[in-house]
Design a protein around this nucleic acid. Structure first.
Length: 240
DNA sequence: ATGTCTAGTGAGACTAGA
C-alpha cells in the first residue's frame, strides 16, 4: 500500500497537476493540506473518476485538508478535538479497510506560527498540545495509524540545508521541536527519518530565490506511524 | 537579492498568509 501527503497550496489552481500526479504515482491514499477552498469548490468529480473516494474539510480562502483513498471510508471525522472554538480547518481523520484489517489516517496542517512573538505562535503551540493529547488517545486503540501532513516543524539541524537561517523561525524554535519530540516519543515512528538516516532529505523549498534549484530545503512534512503501522513499513521517500 | 505563490476583495501601483 502506497500512502502519500502533499501540501498542495490551492487545490483549484493545482487541479491538473494533482490529477496528473495521481495517474502517474498511483497512491492508494493521498492526504492534502492547504486546499484553500470550501468543500463545494474542491475538484471532487475528476478525482473520483480516477477511482478515489474523497473526504474534505475545507474553509474559505486558507487552510483546508482532504483525504483521497481508493478503499472506501468506514468513518470520517473533521477537526482536531480539544477546542470547540477553533474554526480553522486543519485536521481530518478517516478509517479505511486495508486487507483483512483497517487503517486509520489523518491529514494534518499544523499551524505555521510565524512571527514567534505573536498569538500565531501561541496558537501553534496550543494546537500541538491538542494534537499530542489526541495522538495519545489514538495510540491507546492499538491500531495501524498514520498521522501525516505539513507539521511546520524542522525536527533537527540535519533537516535543513541552512539551519542557521531558521534560528528565529517558528518552524525551528526549541519549544516547537520539543513538542515534536514529545509527540514522537509517545511511540510513533517518523517514517522518512527511519528509512533515510542521513541529512539532506527535504520536503519543502521556498518559492523565492531559486531555493528549489539550489536544493535549499527543509523537512517539515512528516508521516508518523503507530507501532502497528510501523511494523508494516517497507520504504519511504520524497517525490520531488 | 524578501528574487514567489494562492486566494479574497472588488476593480488597486490592493491585501493576507505562508
Amino acid at each position: 500500500m502506497k500512502i502519500a501527503t502533499w501540501n498542495i497550496n490551492g487545490a483549484k489552481a493545482r487541479q491538473q497537476g494533482l490529477l496528473t500526479w495521481l495517474e502517474a504515482a498511483k497512491p492508494d491514499v493521498l492526504c492534502l493540506q492547504e486546499i484553500k477552498c470550501v468543500d463545494e469548490a474542491f475538484p471532487r468529480e475528476p478525482i473520483e473518476a480516477l477511482g478515489y473516494n474523497v473526504a474534505v474539510h475545507g474553509q474559505k480562502g486558507f487552510n483546508g485538508v482532504a483525504i483521497l483513498s481508493r478503499a472506501p471510508f468506514d468513518d470520517v471525522s473533521r477537526g482536531l478535538p480539544g477546542d470547540a472554538t477553533d474554526e480553522q480547518s486543519r485536521y481530518i481523520e478517516a478509517v479505511i479497510a486495508a486487507g483483512k484489517s483497517t487503517l486509520r489516517l489523518a491529514s494534518i496542517y499544523l499551524p505555521n506560527g510565524n512571527p514567534v512573538d505573536t498569538e500565531k505562535f501561541t496558537y501553534k503551540l496550543a494546537w500541538m498540545e491538542r494534537l499530542h493529547a489526541h495522538a495519545a488517545s489514538l495510540l491507546a486503540l492499538e491500531e495501524a495509524t498514520v498521522l501525516m501532513g505539513d507539521y511546520n516543524v524542522i525536527p533537527e539541524p540535519a533537516d535543513a540545508r541552512h539551519p542557521e537561517q531558521w534560528v528565529g523561525d517558528a518552524l525551528f524554535q526549541p519549544v516547537s521541536r520539543q513538542a515534536w519530540r514529545r509527540l514522537c516519543h509517545l511511540g510513533f515512528t517518523d517514517a522518512i527519518r527511519a528509512t533515510n538516516p542521513g541529512a539532506g532529505v527535504y520536503t519543502f523549498w521556498d518559492y523565492q530565490a531559486g531555493a528549489f534549484q539550489k536544493d535549499n530545503g527543509i523537512r517539515i512534512d512528516h508521516l508518523l506511524l503507530s507501532p502497528e503501522a510501523a511494523d508494516r513499513l517497507v520504504a519511504a521517500g520524497v517525490d520531488k
